[in-house]
Deep mutational scan, measured.
Amino acid sequence: MAEQVALSRTQVCGILREELFQGDAFHQSDTHIFIIMGASGDLAKKKIYPTIWWLFRDGLLPENTFIVGYARSRLTVADIRKQSEPFFKATPEEKLKLEDFFARNSYVAGQYDDAASYQRLNSHMNALHLGSQANRLFYLALPPTVYEAVTKNIHESCMSQIGWNRIIVEKPFGRDLQSSDRLSNHISSLFREDQIYRIDHYLGKEMVQNLMVLRFANRIFGPIWNRDNIACVILTFKEPFGTEGRGGYFDEFGIIRDVMQNHLLQMLCLVAMEKPASTNSDDVRDEKVKVLKCISEVQANNVVLGQYVGNPDGEGEATKGYLDDPTVPRGSTTATFAAVVLYVENERWDGVPFILRCGKALNERKAEVRLQFHDVAGDIFHQQCKRNELVIRVQPNEAVYTKMMTKKPGMFFNPEESELDLTYGNRYKNVKLPDAYERLILDVFCGSQMHFVRSDELREAWRIFTPLLHQIELEKPKPIPYIYGSRGPTEADELMKRVGFQYEGTYKWVNP
Protein backbone atom coordinates (compact mmCIF):
# COMPACT_ATOMS: atom_id res chain seq x y z
CA MET A 1 0.00 0.00 0.00
CA ALA A 2 1.39 3.40 -1.00
CA GLU A 3 2.44 5.79 1.77
CA GLN A 4 -0.16 8.52 2.21
CA VAL A 5 0.98 12.13 2.26
CA ALA A 6 -0.02 13.84 5.50
CA LEU A 7 -2.70 16.52 5.11
CA SER A 8 -3.49 19.38 7.45
CA ARG A 9 -6.87 19.53 9.17
CA THR A 10 -7.74 22.50 6.95
CA GLN A 11 -7.12 20.38 3.84
CA VAL A 12 -9.07 17.44 5.24
CA CYS A 13 -12.04 19.68 6.11
CA GLY A 14 -11.81 21.22 2.64
CA ILE A 15 -12.31 17.75 1.14
CA LEU A 16 -15.32 17.19 3.41
CA ARG A 17 -16.83 20.54 2.37
CA GLU A 18 -16.37 19.69 -1.29
CA GLU A 19 -18.21 16.38 -0.78
CA LEU A 20 -21.00 18.09 1.13
CA PHE A 21 -21.55 21.11 -1.11
CA GLN A 22 -21.61 19.23 -4.41
CA GLY A 23 -24.93 17.63 -3.45
CA ASP A 24 -28.17 19.43 -4.28
CA ALA A 25 -29.72 18.76 -0.84
CA PHE A 26 -27.40 21.11 1.07
CA HIS A 27 -28.72 24.67 0.84
CA GLN A 28 -25.49 26.49 1.66
CA SER A 29 -26.75 30.04 1.08
CA ASP A 30 -30.16 29.71 2.81
CA THR A 31 -30.72 31.01 6.33
CA HIS A 32 -31.09 28.23 8.92
CA ILE A 33 -32.08 28.38 12.58
CA PHE A 34 -31.01 25.48 14.80
CA ILE A 35 -33.18 25.50 17.94
CA ILE A 36 -32.01 23.47 20.95
CA MET A 37 -35.01 22.68 23.14
CA GLY A 38 -33.62 21.85 26.57
CA ALA A 39 -30.52 24.01 26.10
CA SER A 40 -29.70 24.00 29.82
CA GLY A 41 -29.45 20.20 30.07
CA ASP A 42 -26.55 17.74 30.04
CA LEU A 43 -27.13 16.48 26.50
CA ALA A 44 -27.12 20.03 25.15
CA LYS A 45 -23.94 21.13 26.89
CA LYS A 46 -21.97 17.89 26.41
CA LYS A 47 -23.05 16.88 22.90
CA ILE A 48 -25.22 19.27 20.92
CA TYR A 49 -23.49 22.61 21.48
CA PRO A 50 -20.02 21.03 21.00
CA THR A 51 -21.20 19.30 17.80
CA ILE A 52 -22.62 22.51 16.34
CA TRP A 53 -19.35 24.26 17.24
CA TRP A 54 -17.24 21.60 15.49
CA LEU A 55 -19.39 21.83 12.36
CA PHE A 56 -19.16 25.63 12.43
CA ARG A 57 -15.39 25.59 13.06
CA ASP A 58 -14.80 23.28 10.11
CA GLY A 59 -17.01 25.29 7.75
CA LEU A 60 -19.58 22.52 7.40
CA LEU A 61 -22.68 24.50 8.38
CA PRO A 62 -24.62 26.69 5.94
CA GLU A 63 -23.18 30.22 6.00
CA ASN A 64 -26.20 31.90 7.59
CA THR A 65 -26.89 29.59 10.53
CA PHE A 66 -28.19 30.87 13.87
CA ILE A 67 -28.34 28.80 17.07
CA VAL A 68 -31.17 29.48 19.52
CA GLY A 69 -31.28 27.85 22.94
CA TYR A 70 -34.61 27.36 24.74
CA ALA A 71 -35.22 26.08 28.27
CA ARG A 72 -37.05 26.96 31.47
CA SER A 73 -33.94 28.26 33.24
CA ARG A 74 -33.30 31.99 33.08
CA LEU A 75 -29.91 31.96 31.34
CA THR A 76 -27.85 34.11 29.01
CA VAL A 77 -25.58 33.14 26.12
CA ALA A 78 -22.69 33.75 28.52
CA ASP A 79 -24.16 31.09 30.85
CA ILE A 80 -24.56 28.63 27.98
CA ARG A 81 -20.98 29.32 26.94
CA LYS A 82 -19.65 28.78 30.45
CA GLN A 83 -21.31 25.37 30.81
CA SER A 84 -20.70 24.04 27.28
CA GLU A 85 -17.34 25.46 26.17
CA PRO A 86 -15.26 23.06 28.32
CA PHE A 87 -16.54 20.27 26.01
CA PHE A 88 -15.56 22.12 22.78
CA LYS A 89 -11.84 21.20 22.91
CA ALA A 90 -11.13 24.57 21.29
CA THR A 91 -7.51 25.65 20.83
CA PRO A 92 -6.12 29.15 21.54
CA GLU A 93 -5.80 29.66 17.77
CA GLU A 94 -9.58 29.27 17.44
CA LYS A 95 -10.41 32.16 19.76
CA LEU A 96 -11.71 34.51 17.03
CA LYS A 97 -13.73 31.70 15.45
CA LEU A 98 -15.19 30.92 18.87
CA GLU A 99 -16.29 34.53 19.33
CA ASP A 100 -17.95 34.45 15.91
CA PHE A 101 -19.74 31.22 16.86
CA PHE A 102 -21.22 32.62 20.08
CA ALA A 103 -22.20 35.82 18.28
CA ARG A 104 -24.60 33.62 16.29
CA ASN A 105 -26.08 32.20 19.50
CA SER A 106 -29.06 33.50 21.42
CA TYR A 107 -31.25 32.19 24.22
CA VAL A 108 -34.93 32.37 25.13
CA ALA A 109 -36.34 31.27 28.50
CA GLY A 110 -39.83 29.81 28.59
CA GLN A 111 -42.07 27.02 29.81
CA TYR A 112 -42.56 23.79 27.86
CA ASP A 113 -46.35 23.82 28.15
CA ASP A 114 -47.06 27.55 27.77
CA ALA A 115 -48.28 28.85 24.39
CA ALA A 116 -47.17 32.42 25.15
CA SER A 117 -43.58 31.22 25.67
CA TYR A 118 -43.52 29.69 22.19
CA GLN A 119 -45.00 32.81 20.64
CA ARG A 120 -42.16 34.73 22.25
CA LEU A 121 -39.66 32.20 20.85
CA ASN A 122 -41.17 32.59 17.38
CA SER A 123 -40.96 36.40 17.58
CA HIS A 124 -37.31 36.08 18.58
CA MET A 125 -36.57 33.86 15.55
CA ASN A 126 -38.44 36.17 13.18
CA ALA A 127 -36.28 39.06 14.41
CA LEU A 128 -33.09 37.30 13.29
CA HIS A 129 -31.71 38.18 9.84
CA LEU A 130 -34.17 36.62 7.33
CA GLY A 131 -35.51 34.65 10.30
CA SER A 132 -39.14 34.64 9.15
CA GLN A 133 -38.23 32.72 5.99
CA ALA A 134 -35.45 30.58 7.47
CA ASN A 135 -35.34 26.79 7.51
CA ARG A 136 -35.87 25.65 11.10
CA LEU A 137 -34.41 22.59 12.85
CA PHE A 138 -35.79 21.80 16.31
CA TYR A 139 -33.64 19.48 18.44
CA LEU A 140 -35.61 18.00 21.36
CA ALA A 141 -32.89 17.47 23.99
CA LEU A 142 -35.63 16.82 26.53
CA PRO A 143 -37.15 14.03 28.62
CA PRO A 144 -39.92 12.19 26.73
CA THR A 145 -42.47 13.30 29.34
CA VAL A 146 -42.62 16.76 27.76
CA TYR A 147 -42.48 15.71 24.08
CA GLU A 148 -46.24 15.98 23.55
CA ALA A 149 -46.55 19.51 24.95
CA VAL A 150 -43.39 20.73 23.20
CA THR A 151 -44.22 19.34 19.76
CA LYS A 152 -47.79 20.65 19.96
CA ASN A 153 -46.59 24.17 20.79
CA ILE A 154 -43.84 24.12 18.16
CA HIS A 155 -46.41 23.13 15.55
CA GLU A 156 -48.87 25.82 16.61
CA SER A 157 -46.49 28.74 17.11
CA CYS A 158 -42.94 28.23 15.80
CA MET A 159 -43.08 26.76 12.30
CA SER A 160 -41.43 28.57 9.42
CA GLN A 161 -44.06 29.63 6.89
CA ILE A 162 -41.59 29.83 3.97
CA GLY A 163 -38.63 27.56 4.75
CA TRP A 164 -38.76 23.90 5.71
CA ASN A 165 -39.20 22.58 9.28
CA ARG A 166 -37.54 19.48 10.74
CA ILE A 167 -37.74 18.04 14.23
CA ILE A 168 -35.08 15.84 15.84
CA VAL A 169 -36.32 13.49 18.57
CA GLU A 170 -33.90 11.84 21.01
CA LYS A 171 -34.37 8.34 22.41
CA PRO A 172 -35.96 6.82 24.38
CA PHE A 173 -38.96 6.77 22.06
CA GLY A 174 -41.32 5.52 24.74
CA ARG A 175 -40.93 2.72 27.29
CA ASP A 176 -42.79 -0.05 25.47
CA LEU A 177 -44.95 -0.66 22.40
CA GLN A 178 -47.99 1.10 23.83
CA SER A 179 -46.23 4.29 24.97
CA SER A 180 -44.17 4.41 21.78
CA ASP A 181 -47.31 4.09 19.64
CA ARG A 182 -48.96 6.86 21.63
CA LEU A 183 -45.98 9.18 21.14
CA SER A 184 -45.61 8.28 17.44
CA ASN A 185 -49.30 8.88 16.77
CA HIS A 186 -49.12 12.25 18.51
CA ILE A 187 -46.02 13.45 16.61
CA SER A 188 -47.36 12.07 13.31
CA SER A 189 -50.55 14.08 13.78
CA LEU A 190 -48.44 17.26 13.81
CA PHE A 191 -45.58 16.55 11.39
CA ARG A 192 -45.09 14.58 8.20
CA GLU A 193 -42.73 11.59 8.37
CA ASP A 194 -40.21 13.44 6.19
CA GLN A 195 -40.04 16.15 8.88
CA ILE A 196 -39.37 13.75 11.78
CA TYR A 197 -35.81 12.63 12.58
CA ARG A 198 -35.71 10.03 15.37
CA ILE A 199 -32.04 9.99 16.25
CA ASP A 200 -30.13 6.88 17.28
CA HIS A 201 -26.54 8.13 17.40
CA TYR A 202 -25.19 4.63 16.74
CA LEU A 203 -26.47 4.91 13.18
CA GLY A 204 -24.00 7.79 12.77
CA LYS A 205 -20.98 5.63 13.59
CA GLU A 206 -18.57 5.15 10.69
CA MET A 207 -18.37 1.36 10.96
CA VAL A 208 -22.12 0.93 11.39
CA GLN A 209 -22.61 2.84 8.14
CA ASN A 210 -19.80 0.78 6.59
CA LEU A 211 -21.82 -2.41 7.07
CA MET A 212 -23.89 -1.65 3.97
CA VAL A 213 -20.83 -1.01 1.80
CA LEU A 214 -19.02 -4.12 3.03
CA ARG A 215 -22.04 -6.27 2.31
CA PHE A 216 -23.27 -4.91 -0.98
CA ALA A 217 -20.11 -3.61 -2.67
CA ASN A 218 -17.98 -6.75 -2.29
CA ARG A 219 -18.66 -9.83 -4.41
CA ILE A 220 -16.80 -12.13 -2.01
CA PHE A 221 -19.32 -11.66 0.80
CA GLY A 222 -22.55 -12.19 -1.14
CA PRO A 223 -22.37 -16.00 -1.54
CA ILE A 224 -21.33 -16.66 2.08
CA TRP A 225 -23.72 -14.26 3.86
CA ASN A 226 -26.32 -16.87 4.84
CA ARG A 227 -27.22 -19.79 7.12
CA ASP A 228 -25.22 -22.27 5.03
CA ASN A 229 -21.96 -20.57 6.02
CA ILE A 230 -22.60 -18.44 9.11
CA ALA A 231 -23.04 -20.31 12.39
CA CYS A 232 -23.99 -17.30 14.52
CA VAL A 233 -23.84 -13.52 14.72
CA ILE A 234 -22.79 -11.73 17.91
CA LEU A 235 -23.53 -8.03 18.43
CA THR A 236 -21.69 -6.60 21.42
CA PHE A 237 -21.75 -3.33 23.35
CA LYS A 238 -19.49 -3.19 26.42
CA GLU A 239 -18.73 -0.30 28.76
CA PRO A 240 -15.92 -0.51 31.35
CA PHE A 241 -17.63 1.89 33.78
CA GLY A 242 -20.76 1.76 35.91
CA THR A 243 -23.42 4.38 36.54
CA GLU A 244 -21.05 6.52 38.68
CA GLY A 245 -23.72 8.48 40.52
CA ARG A 246 -26.10 8.72 37.55
CA GLY A 247 -27.97 5.51 38.23
CA GLY A 248 -31.27 7.23 39.02
CA TYR A 249 -31.92 7.96 35.35
CA PHE A 250 -30.57 4.59 34.18
CA ASP A 251 -32.74 2.71 36.68
CA GLU A 252 -35.90 4.00 34.99
CA PHE A 253 -34.96 2.26 31.74
CA GLY A 254 -32.36 -0.47 32.25
CA ILE A 255 -29.84 -1.86 29.79
CA ILE A 256 -32.36 -3.40 27.36
CA ARG A 257 -34.16 -0.11 26.72
CA ASP A 258 -30.94 1.91 26.91
CA VAL A 259 -28.84 -0.05 24.41
CA MET A 260 -30.27 -3.32 23.13
CA GLN A 261 -33.70 -2.37 21.79
CA ASN A 262 -32.17 0.43 19.71
CA HIS A 263 -28.39 0.39 19.05
CA LEU A 264 -27.88 -3.38 18.82
CA LEU A 265 -31.15 -4.08 17.03
CA GLN A 266 -30.33 -1.46 14.41
CA MET A 267 -26.96 -3.12 13.80
CA LEU A 268 -28.70 -6.49 13.52
CA CYS A 269 -30.92 -5.08 10.78
CA LEU A 270 -27.93 -3.88 8.76
CA VAL A 271 -26.29 -7.31 9.03
CA ALA A 272 -29.41 -9.30 8.18
CA MET A 273 -31.29 -7.19 5.60
CA GLU A 274 -31.52 -7.91 1.89
CA LYS A 275 -29.94 -5.58 -0.65
CA PRO A 276 -32.13 -2.46 -1.00
CA ALA A 277 -33.22 -1.21 -4.42
CA SER A 278 -31.00 1.85 -3.90
CA THR A 279 -29.33 3.88 -1.17
CA ASN A 280 -32.45 6.03 -0.97
CA SER A 281 -33.53 6.46 2.67
CA ASP A 282 -36.86 4.67 2.34
CA ASP A 283 -35.45 1.81 0.26
CA VAL A 284 -32.94 1.07 3.02
CA ARG A 285 -35.47 1.43 5.82
CA ASP A 286 -37.98 -0.77 3.97
CA GLU A 287 -35.47 -3.63 4.08
CA LYS A 288 -34.74 -3.07 7.77
CA VAL A 289 -38.45 -3.28 8.56
CA LYS A 290 -38.70 -6.58 6.65
CA VAL A 291 -35.97 -8.03 8.90
CA LEU A 292 -37.72 -6.89 12.08
CA LYS A 293 -41.00 -8.43 10.93
CA CYS A 294 -39.21 -11.79 10.68
CA ILE A 295 -38.13 -11.71 14.34
CA SER A 296 -40.45 -13.21 16.95
CA GLU A 297 -40.88 -11.82 20.45
CA VAL A 298 -37.98 -12.55 22.80
CA GLN A 299 -38.32 -15.83 24.70
CA ALA A 300 -37.39 -15.76 28.40
CA ASN A 301 -35.31 -18.96 28.08
CA ASN A 302 -33.04 -17.08 25.65
CA VAL A 303 -32.27 -14.25 28.07
CA VAL A 304 -29.64 -13.70 30.77
CA LEU A 305 -29.85 -10.61 33.00
CA GLY A 306 -27.05 -9.41 35.27
CA GLN A 307 -26.24 -6.62 37.70
CA TYR A 308 -22.69 -5.63 38.63
CA VAL A 309 -21.35 -5.79 42.17
CA GLY A 310 -18.21 -4.21 43.58
CA ASN A 311 -14.83 -5.80 43.01
CA PRO A 312 -13.15 -6.33 46.40
CA ASP A 313 -9.76 -6.27 44.67
CA GLY A 314 -10.55 -3.17 42.61
CA GLU A 315 -9.86 0.51 43.16
CA GLY A 316 -12.08 3.58 43.28
CA GLU A 317 -15.39 3.13 41.43
CA ALA A 318 -14.59 -0.54 40.75
CA THR A 319 -15.19 -1.35 44.42
CA LYS A 320 -18.79 -0.14 44.17
CA GLY A 321 -21.71 -2.16 42.89
CA TYR A 322 -24.80 -0.84 41.14
CA LEU A 323 -26.75 -0.81 44.39
CA ASP A 324 -24.00 1.27 46.03
CA ASP A 325 -24.88 4.18 43.73
CA PRO A 326 -26.81 6.57 46.03
CA THR A 327 -29.14 7.56 43.17
CA VAL A 328 -30.30 3.96 42.61
CA PRO A 329 -33.45 2.86 44.50
CA ARG A 330 -32.71 0.49 47.35
CA GLY A 331 -32.97 -3.16 46.34
CA SER A 332 -33.37 -2.35 42.63
CA THR A 333 -33.55 -5.36 40.32
CA THR A 334 -32.75 -3.34 37.19
CA ALA A 335 -30.34 -5.19 34.89
CA THR A 336 -27.01 -3.58 33.99
CA PHE A 337 -26.15 -6.52 31.69
CA ALA A 338 -28.25 -8.48 29.22
CA ALA A 339 -27.64 -11.25 26.72
CA VAL A 340 -30.51 -12.11 24.39
CA VAL A 341 -30.81 -14.54 21.48
CA LEU A 342 -33.01 -13.61 18.52
CA TYR A 343 -33.79 -15.50 15.32
CA VAL A 344 -34.56 -13.99 11.91
CA GLU A 345 -37.10 -16.43 10.54
CA ASN A 346 -36.56 -16.20 6.80
CA GLU A 347 -34.84 -18.27 4.12
CA ARG A 348 -31.44 -16.58 4.46
CA TRP A 349 -31.13 -16.78 8.24
CA ASP A 350 -33.34 -19.67 9.37
CA GLY A 351 -31.78 -21.25 12.48
CA VAL A 352 -28.90 -18.77 12.84
CA PRO A 353 -28.78 -17.27 16.35
CA PHE A 354 -28.26 -13.52 16.60
CA ILE A 355 -26.77 -12.96 20.05
CA LEU A 356 -27.11 -9.45 21.49
CA ARG A 357 -24.88 -8.66 24.48
CA CYS A 358 -24.54 -5.38 26.32
CA GLY A 359 -23.52 -4.26 29.76
CA LYS A 360 -21.91 -1.78 32.11
CA ALA A 361 -18.86 -2.22 34.37
CA LEU A 362 -17.36 -4.89 32.10
CA ASN A 363 -13.73 -5.67 31.30
CA GLU A 364 -13.32 -3.34 28.31
CA ARG A 365 -14.90 -0.70 26.11
CA LYS A 366 -16.00 -2.31 22.88
CA ALA A 367 -18.77 -2.33 20.31
CA GLU A 368 -18.58 -4.79 17.45
CA VAL A 369 -20.37 -7.11 15.06
CA ARG A 370 -18.88 -10.62 14.90
CA LEU A 371 -19.93 -13.21 12.34
CA GLN A 372 -18.71 -16.70 13.23
CA PHE A 373 -18.64 -19.19 10.36
CA HIS A 374 -19.30 -22.93 10.45
CA ASP A 375 -16.48 -25.42 10.98
CA VAL A 376 -14.62 -26.55 7.87
CA ALA A 377 -16.09 -29.81 6.61
CA GLY A 378 -13.74 -32.79 6.31
CA ASP A 379 -11.08 -31.69 8.80
CA ILE A 380 -7.58 -32.94 7.90
CA PHE A 381 -5.70 -30.98 10.57
CA HIS A 382 -6.64 -33.07 13.60
CA GLN A 383 -9.03 -30.53 15.16
CA GLN A 384 -6.39 -27.79 15.26
CA CYS A 385 -8.52 -25.36 13.23
CA LYS A 386 -10.66 -22.70 14.83
CA ARG A 387 -13.73 -21.15 13.23
CA ASN A 388 -13.29 -18.22 10.86
CA GLU A 389 -14.74 -14.91 12.03
CA LEU A 390 -15.45 -11.61 10.32
CA VAL A 391 -15.38 -8.75 12.83
CA ILE A 392 -16.55 -5.18 12.28
CA ARG A 393 -15.21 -3.17 15.20
CA VAL A 394 -17.36 -0.08 15.76
CA GLN A 395 -15.44 1.38 18.70
CA PRO A 396 -12.82 2.09 19.81
CA ASN A 397 -10.21 1.90 17.01
CA GLU A 398 -12.50 1.33 14.03
CA ALA A 399 -11.46 -1.76 12.10
CA VAL A 400 -12.58 -4.65 9.93
CA TYR A 401 -10.69 -7.90 10.29
CA THR A 402 -11.09 -11.55 9.39
CA LYS A 403 -9.86 -14.20 11.78
CA MET A 404 -8.54 -17.08 9.71
CA MET A 405 -6.18 -20.03 9.81
CA THR A 406 -2.72 -19.91 8.21
CA LYS A 407 0.26 -22.25 8.22
CA LYS A 408 2.59 -21.71 11.13
CA PRO A 409 6.09 -21.00 9.78
CA GLY A 410 8.22 -24.12 9.94
CA MET A 411 8.59 -27.61 8.55
CA PHE A 412 5.14 -28.98 9.25
CA PHE A 413 1.52 -28.25 8.31
CA ASN A 414 0.55 -26.79 11.65
CA PRO A 415 -2.29 -24.25 11.34
CA GLU A 416 -2.46 -21.17 13.57
CA GLU A 417 -4.87 -18.26 13.93
CA SER A 418 -4.07 -15.02 12.15
CA GLU A 419 -5.97 -12.12 10.59
CA LEU A 420 -6.57 -10.02 7.53
CA ASP A 421 -6.87 -6.53 8.95
CA LEU A 422 -8.15 -3.13 7.86
CA THR A 423 -7.58 -0.73 10.74
CA TYR A 424 -8.95 2.70 9.90
CA GLY A 425 -6.33 4.58 11.89
CA ASN A 426 -3.57 3.05 9.74
CA ARG A 427 -5.24 2.99 6.34
CA TYR A 428 -6.99 6.37 6.48
CA LYS A 429 -4.43 8.64 8.12
CA ASN A 430 -5.66 11.73 6.26
CA VAL A 431 -9.36 11.26 6.86
CA LYS A 432 -11.38 13.05 9.52
CA LEU A 433 -13.96 10.57 10.77
CA PRO A 434 -16.93 12.73 11.80
CA ASP A 435 -18.38 12.23 15.25
CA ALA A 436 -21.72 10.39 15.09
CA TYR A 437 -23.65 13.50 16.13
CA GLU A 438 -21.79 15.64 13.56
CA ARG A 439 -22.76 13.24 10.79
CA LEU A 440 -26.38 12.93 11.87
CA ILE A 441 -26.96 16.65 12.40
CA LEU A 442 -25.49 17.30 8.95
CA ASP A 443 -27.88 14.65 7.60
CA VAL A 444 -30.78 16.67 9.02
CA PHE A 445 -29.51 19.83 7.32
CA CYS A 446 -29.30 17.82 4.07
CA GLY A 447 -32.71 16.17 4.51
CA SER A 448 -31.28 12.63 4.49
CA GLN A 449 -33.23 10.21 6.71
CA MET A 450 -31.31 7.01 5.92
CA HIS A 451 -29.65 6.95 9.34
CA PHE A 452 -32.77 7.81 11.32
CA VAL A 453 -35.49 5.52 12.64
CA ARG A 454 -38.84 5.41 10.84
CA SER A 455 -42.09 4.95 12.76
CA ASP A 456 -42.71 1.40 11.49
CA GLU A 457 -39.13 0.38 12.41
CA LEU A 458 -39.70 1.72 15.89
CA ARG A 459 -42.98 -0.15 16.27
CA GLU A 460 -41.48 -3.50 15.22
CA ALA A 461 -38.50 -3.04 17.55
CA TRP A 462 -40.79 -2.45 20.53
CA ARG A 463 -43.02 -5.39 19.49
CA ILE A 464 -40.02 -7.72 19.83
CA PHE A 465 -39.01 -6.58 23.32
CA THR A 466 -42.20 -5.35 25.03
CA PRO A 467 -43.48 -8.75 26.30
CA LEU A 468 -40.09 -9.46 27.92
CA LEU A 469 -39.93 -5.98 29.45
CA HIS A 470 -43.43 -6.34 30.88
CA GLN A 471 -42.58 -9.79 32.27
CA ILE A 472 -39.45 -8.39 33.95
CA GLU A 473 -41.42 -5.51 35.48
CA LEU A 474 -44.14 -7.85 36.74
CA GLU A 475 -41.99 -10.67 38.11
CA LYS A 476 -38.92 -8.58 39.08
CA PRO A 477 -36.44 -11.46 38.67
CA LYS A 478 -33.20 -10.96 40.59
CA PRO A 479 -30.40 -10.36 38.08
CA ILE A 480 -27.28 -12.51 38.29
CA PRO A 481 -24.46 -10.65 40.09
CA TYR A 482 -21.18 -10.19 38.21
CA ILE A 483 -18.00 -8.52 39.42
CA TYR A 484 -17.13 -5.02 38.22
CA GLY A 485 -14.47 -5.40 35.49
CA SER A 486 -15.38 -8.99 34.53
CA ARG A 487 -16.76 -10.35 31.23
CA GLY A 488 -20.23 -10.47 32.76
CA PRO A 489 -22.22 -13.43 34.13
CA THR A 490 -20.84 -16.85 33.16
CA GLU A 491 -24.47 -17.82 32.46
CA ALA A 492 -24.29 -15.56 29.39
CA ASP A 493 -21.34 -17.57 28.06
CA GLU A 494 -23.31 -20.76 28.69
CA LEU A 495 -26.30 -19.38 26.77
CA MET A 496 -24.08 -18.47 23.82
CA LYS A 497 -22.50 -21.93 23.83
CA ARG A 498 -25.93 -23.57 24.00
CA VAL A 499 -27.12 -21.82 20.83
CA GLY A 500 -23.96 -22.61 18.86
CA PHE A 501 -21.25 -20.01 19.50
CA GLN A 502 -17.76 -21.40 20.04
CA TYR A 503 -15.58 -19.26 22.29
CA GLU A 504 -11.94 -20.24 21.85
CA GLY A 505 -10.20 -17.54 23.89
CA THR A 506 -6.96 -18.35 22.07
CA TYR A 507 -6.69 -15.21 19.94
CA LYS A 508 -7.18 -11.52 20.69
CA TRP A 509 -7.07 -8.74 18.10
CA VAL A 510 -4.50 -6.05 18.89
CA ASN A 511 -4.73 -2.56 17.42
CA PRO A 512 -1.64 -2.32 15.13
Rank of each mutant, 00 (worst) to 15 (best):
S8K: 15
R9C: 09
T10P: 07
T10V: 10
Q11G: 15
I15T: 14
L16P: 15
R17I: 09
R17W: 08
R17Y: 15
E18T: 08
E18F: 06
E18C: 07
E19R: 15
E19S: 15
L20H: 15
L20E: 12
F21D: 13
Q22H: 15
Q22E: 14
Q22K: 14
G23H: 14
G23I: 15
A25P: 15
F26P: 11
Q28W: 11
S29K: 15
T31G: 10
T31Q: 09
H32L: 05
F34M: 12
A39Q: 00
D42I: 00
D42P: 03
D42T: 00
D42W: 01
L43F: 01
L43Y: 04
K46I: 01
K47N: 04
I48D: 14
Y49M: 10
Y49H: 00
Y49W: 09
P50A: 09
P50I: 04
P50W: 02
T51S: 10
W53A: 00
L55F: 05
L55Y: 05
F56L: 04
F56Q: 04
R57F: 01
G59Q: 07
G59K: 09
L60S: 03
L60I: 10
P62V: 00
P62I: 02
E63N: 10
N64H: 12
N64D: 11
N64G: 07
N64V: 05
T65N: 01
F66T: 07
F66Y: 15
I67H: 05
I67P: 02
G69A: 09
Y70T: 11
A71T: 03
S73T: 14
S73K: 13
S73W: 02
R74P: 15
L75I: 13
T76Y: 07
A78H: 11
R81F: 14
R81K: 12
Q83R: 12
Q83T: 10
S84Y: 13
E85D: 07
E85Y: 08
P86T: 08
F88T: 05
K89F: 12
K89Q: 12
A90I: 12
T91N: 12
T91E: 13
T91A: 14
P92D: 11
E93S: 10
E93G: 13
E94V: 06
K95P: 03
L96M: 11
E99Y: 07
F101Q: 03
F101E: 04
A103V: 14
R104F: 07
R104D: 00
S106M: 09
S106L: 12
A109H: 15
A109K: 13
A109E: 13
A109T: 15
G110W: 01
G110D: 06
Q111R: 13
Y112V: 03
Y112D: 00
Y112T: 05
D114N: 12
D114K: 13
D114M: 10
A115D: 13
A115W: 14
A115L: 14
A116R: 12
A116V: 13
Y118S: 08
R120F: 13
L121T: 00
L121Y: 01
N122Y: 09
N122R: 14
N122F: 08
S123E: 15
S123Y: 14
S123T: 13
H124C: 12
H124M: 09
M125G: 06
M125Y: 04
M125R: 04
H129N: 15
H129G: 15
H129D: 14
L130P: 12
S132R: 15
S132F: 11
Q133Y: 12
A134N: 14
A134Y: 10
A134C: 12
N135M: 14
N135A: 09
F138I: 10
Y139M: 08
Y139R: 03
A141P: 03
L142M: 04
P143V: 13
P144Q: 03
P144K: 01
V146T: 11
V146M: 10
Y147F: 10
Y147I: 02
Y147C: 01
E148N: 08
E148G: 10
A149N: 14
V150L: 08
V150S: 12
V150D: 04
V150T: 10
T151G: 08
K152N: 14
N153F: 12
N153L: 14
I154C: 12
E156N: 14
E156P: 08
C158H: 01
C158P: 04
M159Y: 10
M159P: 11
S160K: 11
Q161A: 15
Q161N: 14
G163C: 10
G163N: 10
W164Q: 07
W164H: 07
N165H: 10
R166D: 01
I167D: 00
I168L: 11
I168K: 00
V169S: 00
E170R: 02
E170G: 04
P172W: 03
F173Q: 05
G174E: 04
G174L: 03
G174A: 04
G174Y: 00
R175E: 12
D176N: 10
Q178A: 14
S179L: 04
R182A: 14
R182F: 10
L183A: 02
S184M: 10
N185K: 13
N185I: 09
I187N: 02
S188T: 07
S188H: 12
S189P: 09
S189E: 14
R192Q: 13
E193T: 03
E193K: 04
D194Q: 13
Q195D: 09
I196A: 02
I196T: 11
Y197R: 01
Y197N: 05
Y197C: 05
R198S: 00
R198D: 04
I199T: 08
I199Y: 04
I199V: 06
I199R: 04
D200K: 03
D200Q: 05
G204F: 00
K205R: 02
E206Y: 08
M207L: 11
M207P: 04
M207N: 09
M207C: 05
V208L: 14
N210I: 00
L214N: 00
L214T: 06
L214P: 02
F216E: 01
F216I: 05
A217W: 03
N218M: 04
N218I: 02
R219D: 01
I220F: 12
F221H: 08
G222F: 09
G222V: 08
P223N: 15
P223H: 09
P223R: 07
P223C: 08
I224S: 09
I224V: 15
W225H: 05
N226C: 09
N226M: 06
N229D: 10
A231P: 00
A231G: 08
C232Y: 05
V233C: 09
L235A: 08
L235K: 02
T236L: 05
E239N: 00
P240W: 07
F241T: 05
G242C: 03
G242S: 07
G242L: 02
G242W: 03
E244L: 13
G245I: 01
R246D: 03
G247I: 06
G247L: 05
G248F: 05
Y249K: 03
F250T: 02
F250N: 01
F250M: 00
D251F: 03
D251N: 13
F253C: 08
